[in-house]
Amino acid sequence: MTAARSTRQRDVIARVLHDAEGPLAVAEVLARARSDLPALGVATVYRTLKLLTEQGRIHPVTLDGETRYEPSGKGHHHHFSCTACGRVFTLHTCPVSLPRGTVYPGGFVVESHEVTLYGRCPTCAQTGAPAR
Rank of each mutant, 00 (worst) to 15 (best):
Q9F: 11
A84H: 00
V109Y: 03
P71T: 15
E21M: 06
A20Y: 08
G73H: 03
V96T: 01
H92S: 10
A131Q: 12
A43R: 12
Y104T: 12
A33Q: 09
M1I: 13
P23Y: 08
T116F: 04
T53G: 06
F80K: 05
T83L: 14
Y118P: 08
D19W: 00
A3F: 13
S6T: 14
G41S: 09
R10D: 09
S6Y: 10
P105S: 09
S72R: 05
H59A: 13
H79K: 02
R32E: 07
C85N: 07
Q55E: 15
T62I: 14
A39Q: 12
P122N: 05
E54F: 09
L51R: 10
Q55H: 08
V29D: 05
R87Q: 09
Q55T: 02
R120S: 14
L30G: 02
T62D: 12
T62S: 13
R47T: 06
G128F: 04
A25D: 09
V88Y: 02
V45P: 05
E54L: 14
H78T: 02
F89W: 15
R120C: 12
G106T: 00
H78W: 00
R15C: 12
C121I: 00
I58E: 00
H77Q: 09
G101D: 03
R120Y: 08
V103L: 06
G86N: 03
D64V: 11
R120D: 15
H77N: 06
D36H: 11
A3I: 12
Y69V: 02
R100A: 10
I58L: 01
V110S: 07
E21N: 14
E111L: 14
L51P: 04
T90G: 08
L51T: 11
C85V: 09
S97Y: 08
Q55P: 00
L91N: 13
T44W: 01
E66V: 15
H79W: 02
G86E: 10
C82Y: 05
V61N: 12
P38W: 03
V12Q: 10
H78R: 00
R87Y: 03
H18S: 15
V42I: 10
G106H: 01
P60F: 00
A129C: 01
T102W: 09
T102V: 04
A84T: 02
R10I: 09
